[in-house]
Design a protein around this nucleic acid. Structure first.
Lengths: 238, 238
DNA sequence: ACGTCCCTGTGATGCCCGTCACAAGTGGGT
DNA sequence: ACCCACTTGTGACGGGCATCACAGGGACGT
């Protein structure tokens, strides 16, 4: 679905869940007119860096198409992935609203199409549009929620199998690609999965093959099959 | 400083940094009138639970006096502390804005005084007051920032000394009590420190005494002295 | 076909830190 | 002063997982 003015947000707004913000859906057309005039659309190849940790925020990005990896890196090069941003979501909102530097790096995982709105333009828009500010707050609230879940995973789990099981179940419910069944796409390397759950690549490999032999879940290439959901849940809540 | 209508927020607004939100400071008096009429003030003893993980949000709380511990608990009773809320800050904003259940539990660490505003009243206030919505978004943005730092600590550090050093330095800069010098109050048990950095109580005790013998930092009772800041920073960035 | 990357799989090794167990300090209530 | 509850301090032990090292495997370009 397109917004009236054509801010291409792709996909339908029917499943306008919190996470897939679809920031501008349902906004009065008149209010969007101003934004429409100041947006810049551009495309990026796989592996492009949209912004980096530490840069001061130039504006927000609306991801029209593709997937983006949000990560933080330590001095020694180790990385944590905060989340995978899917099409329809907004990037850089925190930095733009707080005025602080971006605290994460955004890198495309596949070719992406992006709308950019300059910080001043966006803040002006928010000021003149109370509804949009609330929408922004909701989006931030949702991001916070996600961050807390990650803290829960990193801080409360005592074993890697537990964290990996949690991750797989989460991936299955937060419907990536094929509508949340037992079989889905998981186009991430073991290294990246490790960075999401805070463990090493080798351990991810080993734990995945352990899951496979135990008939819990199998990851072949980029296809994930959840074979025994209850079994995985039992690992999360022993 | 008090807001014009008397929503007691204690302390001055001069240091109105993001974190110490002082949500309503600088808001036009007329706008606060409505809120003033619908707030409830109450006091709680130490150890009181203001709200619990999983409850649906009744409203927001403004912490006028005291400190509150925000934590999440796993099924087996293990806990992570998200943050320590200080006076002047707002509690429960995420849940109220998103409409989801509270995802953390708020427990007073000392006797507290709290202003409560019902969810509907607050949302109505936001809708009629664009500036306040932006303020809310900034507060959320700040909370998100804090959460990300915790993820960085939990996910990127490889050793407990590193995490503890990071925690102590953070405590020193984010000025708790005596204005961020070398000597400050840290009124948390080792257990609680462990829950903040994701480690066990015994390890906190051991690591602290290691710091003491290495002349890095000393925690005696609730008084923390940073003896060698560079040394601690070196543990964080080796 | 072949080489070049990057990803995945697997073994061996070591050590950090969680856990259990218990002793010693601290404080505050009566 | 006393006791009780809670905190802090310390030893011993063992396992999970990071790390290093290297061997396949797949994709892609030339």
């Amino acid at each position: 679905m397109k917004t009236p003015q054509g801010l291409e947000l792709t996909e339908s707004c029917r499943d306008c869940k919190l996470r897939s913000s679809h920031f501008f859906c349902g906004m009065p057309p008149a209010n969007l007119k101003g934004l429409e005039a100041v947006k810049y659309t551009s495309g990026y190849p796989e592996g492009a860096v949209l912004f980096m940790e530490g840069q001061s925020p130039r504006g927000i990005l609306i991801l029209c198409k593709g997937r983006v990896k949000l990560s933080m890196t330590s001095a020694e090069g180790k990385a944590v992935i905060l989340r995978i941003v899917k099409q329809g979501e907004v990037l850089g909102l925190h930095a733009v609203i707080s005025g602080d530097a971006y605290q994460s790096t955004a890198e495309t995982l596949e070719p992406c199409q992006v709308n950019f709105i300059r910080r001043d333009d966006f803040l002006g828009f928010l000021r003149q549009n109370g509804e949009a500010s609330i929408r922004a707050a909701q989006q931030l609230s949702c991001d916070y929620h996600t961050a807390c879940e990650q803290i829960r995973s990193l801080g409360l789990a005592h074993s890697v199998p537990e964290k990996l099981a949690r991750f797989l179940l989460d991936w299955a419910t937060n419907g990536h690609e094929p509508k949340s069944g037992t079989r889905m796409k998981l186009t991430l390397t073991h290294e990246e999965i490790g960075q999401m759950i805070g463990t090493s690549r080798e351990t991810v490999t080993r734990t995945l093959s352990e899951f496979k032999t135990k008939q819990l879940a199998a990851l072949n290439g980029s296809t994930l099959v959840i074979q025994n959901k209850e079994g995985l849940e039992h690992l999360v809540n022993p």
